[in-house]
Design a protein around this nucleic acid. Sequence first.
DNA 1: GCCAACGTTGGC
DNA 2: GCCAACGTTGGC
Length: 151
Amino acid sequence: MFKSEPSCFSFADLQSRPDGTEHWDGVRNFQARNFLRDEIAVGDGVLFYHSNIAEPAVVGLAEVVRGGYPDWTAFDPAAEHFDPQSRREEPRWYMVDVRYVRPLLRPVTLAEMKLHPALAGMALLHRSRLSVQPVTGAEWTYILQLGGVAG
DNA sequence: GCCAACGTTGGC
DNA sequence: GCCAACGTTGGC
């Protein structure tokens, strides 16, 4: 699951990109970095989640089209998420590329996910501040069914 | 807008 | 290496 504030970057923004692809850069949290660098691979499915709004929700599906590689925005002093501690020889931060796949027929809200015991173990409910987090196969299937999309 | 949770930094 | 201070995230 990838989380984003829609006022910053929304699922519709992803759809409107050329080829529907975008760099998932700017992540500056070590645990999320570890997922981007070590766990996430080309072809992985992504649940796109809108955070920090009235009804936070999973709104659509994306997929990883390039696995973890150094986040070059950290090297650029003019970039918003510049980090002088990240050096090209020893990058501190990583990013992946994602591509728009399709929306859920209806969003699956955070409130709804809290109601389902099958989803009680989700990182989303316990590590709410982690912006990139794992989803189990069972959770993935369950959420797609709630969203009206076949898994 | 408030505030709880929590990741990160820095003093010791 | 501990822990207080601080900053940020994100639900409400």
